[in-house]
Write a protein that binds this DNA or RNA. Structure first.
Length: 651
RNA sequence: GCUGCCUUAGCUCAGUCGGUAGAGCAACUGAUUCGUAAUCAGUAGGUCCGCGGUUCGAAUCCGCGAGGCAGCACCA
């Protein structure tokens, strides 16, 4: 095509605009309106985001990106990273730049410099960034020959940049973006100039990060920033961070007296009475749900001889994370990191028939894993935790139906906590795996059929499956939009083999069962942490460790208050009685801060009429009603979504 | 585990230049008996994370260790 041939661009509204020859994004914008030319930040050409200076040489679908477009955010953030890199190099000569991408909510840049940055430095860097933005330097793109680019960065002492270019494919164009004097290797695209970054950015934190994300490499210094289209968005984001901090389960756990951690038992939790009540309510809820779903519950040993872990493969693969103990001078026992080998031992007791399958074996299994110290986080990531674990022993034919049933159960459980936005990650065969390709084909298609039958949206997580089989990971979104990975479903052909589980089939021959590893909450500890943050400590009444406080106004009402509390307790409610000689204002305040869902206030008026005054958490008004009515009402409200407890007999 | 920061009363935190520590809340005692988010007064409470060093003198400066926080790596 000759450079003079006409170019026709099609705008999003379908309008076609002819140009006599190649045309830049900026020129297209100008041809539409002066104001668009001013506001345009980049151009999308046949779906590809490009610089405004990009020359359109062939007919194409184009749309101009302005600040009002959501996708402007990535450009702003990426450019903010460049501006930060320039600021850092201006202030701290000799600092090497490495990479600096846009990320969710902002950007970062990794620097190599012998002296660590201080919070004070961050302020200086941010001030310098604002200067560079104000200077409104145009971003310009250049393409350099590969060798020249390598030599340039090497001569400047930028060994990381030189390494990045060396790693690029031989035929790749080496693009360089300049902003005034400063330049950086970058794929682009960029905004027209530094001023377009705007002022709605803020440097957030300093952190270490390994070069190329590999812990064997040297550690770089990462500076994180957040950047938005305008101050309102920035402020909303900062408010959201404050909200997350306000909900932090470590803070609420302390304030609400649920649990504590201390250094003599790092990674293990001291559950206080209220926290443990919350645990028990949650555990019993799950127990009721899985019992109704046809599971049997078991309990397997904490300490198991290493011989069994050698058979299962854990000793070889996960030895480093396993705690051990010595018995009888020289016998090595390991604290179980998982429950599956134990469950196989129960399965192996006696002869199993195909008629016993599917066998759904559940355990609130207390596991220990020696997690790296830096991984520990409140009660969310600990070394001693309890899985709501179960293994479904079934035939290959049963994989799909069992998986669908599990997905339904999981969805229903999540819904009971108000989690309705659930996504699924499908992790398929990893490069290093056990089992034949034919078996993997079957396992993967069965699992895919299940996730599709359950009508859950899923994304592919290629190569991330467990070595013994593909897995689904269930991610729920909480009340303030954060994602938490909780449930899992894994198909396993390997452990039954290694631990020699078998059943007698219809044909009278012995067969290997398949094991489905599955958890809904994941870990009790972590899920409770998620619940605390999701509800901001204001648990629904069925879950609240303390559901009702009966508070008396004067000690004259203490006798009646005791009667009220006893009646509520008899109705199955978790009640406390507050007869302290304190003003009702103080009692209301304290129990509200403790986030007790219902406050029953009784004074002489109520005592005379055998009535109560109900005050709900967060509410201002009171509801006066007869005691009997209140007891019935609260009993109804506090009913577990799993229904009333029934004697546990799955047999 | 790695990098940086932090650790002072039960809790939240202040503590200047190195001169042996302070507030609010909580606790305890007393008064008060009160109608829906803090009644008043008084009392007591400290191995300033631990160990070592510098110094006439260390909460403060230095080293080592522990724990915590943020991120990275890890998360079977």
């Amino acid at each position: 095509m000759s450079p003079t041939s006409p170019v026709i661009v099609t705008l999003p509204d379908g309008a076609e605009r002819p140009f006599p020859g190649p045309v830049t994004g900026a020129e297209i914008a100008l041809s539409i309106s002066k104001s668009l030319a001013k506001e345009a930040l980049a151009i999308r050409i046949d779906g590809q985001l490009r610089d405004l200076s990009f020359l359109v040489t062939t007919n194409a679908q184009v749309s101009l990106v302005t600040r009002s477009d959501e996708e402007a955010l990535d450009l702003i953030r990426h450019d903010a990273a460049h501006v930060m890199a320039e600021a850092v190099q201006a202030l701290y000569p000799g600092t090497q730049v490495t990479i600096g991408p846009a990320i969710a909510n902002g950007f970062y840049y990794d620097f190599a410099r012998p002296t660590p940055f201080t919070p004070d430095d961050m302020q200086k860097i941010e001030a310098k960034m604002r200067e560079i933005v104000a200077a409104n330097r145009p971003f310009t793109r250049e393409e350099w020959p590969r060798a020249q680019a390598i030599t340039y960065f090497q001569d400047k002492g930028e060994k990381y940049k030189a390494e990045l270019i060396t790693a690029l494919p031989n035929d790749a164009a080496i693009s360089i973006y300049r902003q005034g004097e400063w330049l950086d290797l970058c794929r682009g695209p960029h905004l027209p100039s530094t001023a377009k970054v705007g002022t709605a950015f803020k440097l957030m934190r300093l952190a270490g990060a390994y070069w190329r994300g590999d812990h064997r490499n040297e550690m770089l210094q990462r500076i994180y920033g957040t950047a938005w289209r305008d101050d309102k968005e920035l402020k909303a984001h900062l408010t959201q961070l404050e909200e997350a901090e306000r909900r932090d389960h470590r803070r609420l756990g302390k304030e609400m007296d649920l649990f504590h951690l201390q250094e003599e038992a790092v990674g293990s939790i001291f559950w206080h009475p209220k926290g443990w009540m919350l645990w028990r309510v949650l555990e019993n809820y799950v127990r009721d749900r899985i019992s109704a779903a046809g599971y049997v519950e078991v309990r397997t040993p904490q300490l198991i001889d290493r011989v069994l872990w050698e058979q299962s493969g854990h000793w070889e693969k996960f030895r480093a994370a396993m705690f051990t103990a010595i018995a009888d001078e020289d016998k090595v026992l390991a604290l179980k990191p998982m429950n599956c080998p134990g469950h196989v031992q129960i399965f192996r007791q006696g002869i199993k028939s195909y008629r016993d399958l599917p066998l759904r074996m559940a355990e609130f299994g207390a596991c220990h894993r020696n997690e790296p110290s830096g991984a520990l986080h409140g009660i969310m990531r600990v070394r001693a935790f309890t899985q709501d674990d179960a293994h479904i022993f079934c035939t290959e034919d049963q994989i799909t139906s069992e998986s669908v049933a599990f997905c339904r159960l999981l969805e229903s459980v999540y819904r009971d906590f108000g989690f309705t936005d659930i996504s699924v990650k499908f992790s398929d065969r990893p490069p290093v795996r056990a089992g034949s390709d034919a078996v993997w084909d079957r396992a993967e298609s069965a699992l895919r059929a299940a996730v599709e039958a359950a009508r859950l949206p899923y994304t592919l997580n290629p190569g991330e499956g467990a070595f013994y089989g593909p897995k689904l990971e269930f991610v729920l979104r909480d009340a303030i939009g954060r994602d938490w990975q909780c449930g899992t479903l894994q198909v396993d052909f390997v452990l039954p083999e290694r631990l020699d589980a078998e059943y007698v089939g219809e044909d009278g021959a012995k067969h290997r069962p398949v094991m489905l590893h599955r958890a809904i909450l994941g870990s009790m500890e972590r899920f409770i942490g998620v619940l605390i943050e999701h509800y901001a400590g204001r648990f629904p009444i069925w879950l609240a460790p303390l559901q009702v406080v009966v508070a008396t106004i004067t000690n004259d009402a203490d006798g009646y208050g005791g009667e009220v509390a006893a009646a509520l307790k008899k109705a199955g409610l978790r009640v406390a009685l507050d007869t302290r000689n304190e003003k009702i204002n103080l009692k209301v305040r304290e129990h509200s801060l403790q986030k007790v869902p219902v406050l029953v206030v009784v004074g002489n008026r109520e005592a005379e009429n055998r009535a109560v005054a109900l005050r709900r958490l967060g509410g201002k008004d009171q509801e006066i009603m007869a005691l009997d009515e209140a007891v019935a009402k609260l009993r109804e409200e506090a009913r577990s979504p799993a229904g009333d407890r029934v004697p546990d007999s799955p047999f």
